[in-house]
Amino acid sequence: MFKKAERKRSYVKIALCGVSGSGKTYSALLMAQGLGEKIAMIDTENGSGELYSDLYDYDVAQIVPPFTTTNYINAIKEAEKAGYDVLIIDSLSHVWNGAGGLLEQQEQLARTKYKGNSWAAWKDITPMHDKLVQTILQSKMHVIVTMRSKQDYIQTEDKKIKKVGMAPVQREGLEYEFTIMFDIDREKHEATASKDRTRLFDNTVGAITPETGEAIRQWIDGGAEMSEPDPVVVPVAEPAAKSIEYVKFEDNKCFVQGNHGWQNVEELSVEALKVILSKPQFEKAHSCAQACLDAIEVATGAIE
């Protein structure tokens, strides 16, 4: 059953996050130069990915609305089939909240299929999202995705709203799936590694260059062993005082209070729903969380 552990080469999955104008596309191309020789880009930004064609040789495939998971998955598989070393997905945010993306599909399904029940509509959307994520993670290429950032807020114990930094425009928890996640500053275009399983970067990286990609490739070629993926769970607040409110209902939706503010139970991952079910402070949300788990199980079984 057990065997001696050995170092294996792997394909890294990297996320670059930042607001518009922070230089995500340019940084992705610079990093890709150091990672591999044959580079492809999935462009969802109206051809902006080709503006840097003088920088390096790379191929481009455009995705136009509707930004469905199927269109992304087909493009990823085509890139893998063509034998590219590095694939840049610019941007992954469109599949979440772009025209025809998952949020728009969820709203449409709620209206047309589930009689306005947005909660029930997630049982169709979650398997689509999970399939795209697994396609990225299992692809035999290095993958660099760009994601737009937005200001994130939380509600403190005294009911005040507090800024807590930037968050990617994507489904909650997706950032845990990547090998490295860089946040790029708009003013100086410098990056910080908010997550780094390679342990190559000490938080602040500076401007991303081809040397950044080369350092990652050397780590890969050295056979460095990947650590086990972090569990994708919603950061939940432990009970500190009986006065704290952990569950609320608004517009026929159930929300839970975590370290990143109020989160819609319908939008949480399977792992996060299980965490909710294990915490007594979320008892009022247990029935909602269990219903979501049941719906996801049914939908996933139907797809398979």
Rank of each mutant, 00 (worst) to 15 (best):
Trp122Phe: 13
Ser194Asn: 08
Ile180Pro: 02
Glu177His: 14
Glu157Met: 06
Gly165Glu: 12
Lys195Leu: 06
Ala191Arg: 00
Thr192Gly: 03
Pro127Ser: 04
Gln134Trp: 06
Lys163Trp: 05
Leu109Gln: 03
Asn203Cys: 08
Gln155Ile: 15
Asp130Phe: 00
Val169Leu: 11
Pro168Arg: 03
Ile136Leu: 09
Thr192Val: 15
Gln155Ser: 07
Ile144Glu: 08
Tyr114Cys: 03
Lys195Tyr: 05
Asp152Tyr: 11
Trp119Met: 07
His189Ser: 05
Ser139Asp: 08
Tyr153Ile: 10
Ile144Cys: 05
Val133Lys: 09
Glu177Asp: 12
Ser149Thr: 12
Ala120Tyr: 02
Gly206Asn: 04
Thr126Tyr: 15
Ile180Met: 09
Gln108Glu: 14
Gln151His: 10
Met141Gln: 09
His129Ser: 02
Thr198Ala: 00
Lys115Gln: 09
Gly116Asn: 08
Leu109Met: 08
Glu175Thr: 13
Glu157Asn: 12
Thr126Ser: 05
Leu137His: 07
Phe178Gly: 05
Phe178Asp: 06
Asp152Gln: 15
Ile161Thr: 15
Ile180Asp: 02
Asp196Tyr: 12
Lys159Pro: 01
Thr192Met: 08
Asp183Gln: 15
Gln108Thr: 14
Ser149Glu: 11
Ser118His: 13
Phe182Pro: 05
Leu132Gln: 02
Thr179Asn: 13
Thr179Leu: 12
Thr179Lys: 02
Tyr114Gln: 06
Glu107Ala: 14
Ala193Gln: 09
Met141Leu: 13
Val205Arg: 01
Thr112Lys: 08
Val143Ser: 01
Arg186Thr: 15
Arg199Val: 07
Gln134Tyr: 07
Asp183Lys: 14
Glu190Cys: 00
Tyr153Asn: 03
Asp158Leu: 07
Thr198Phe: 00
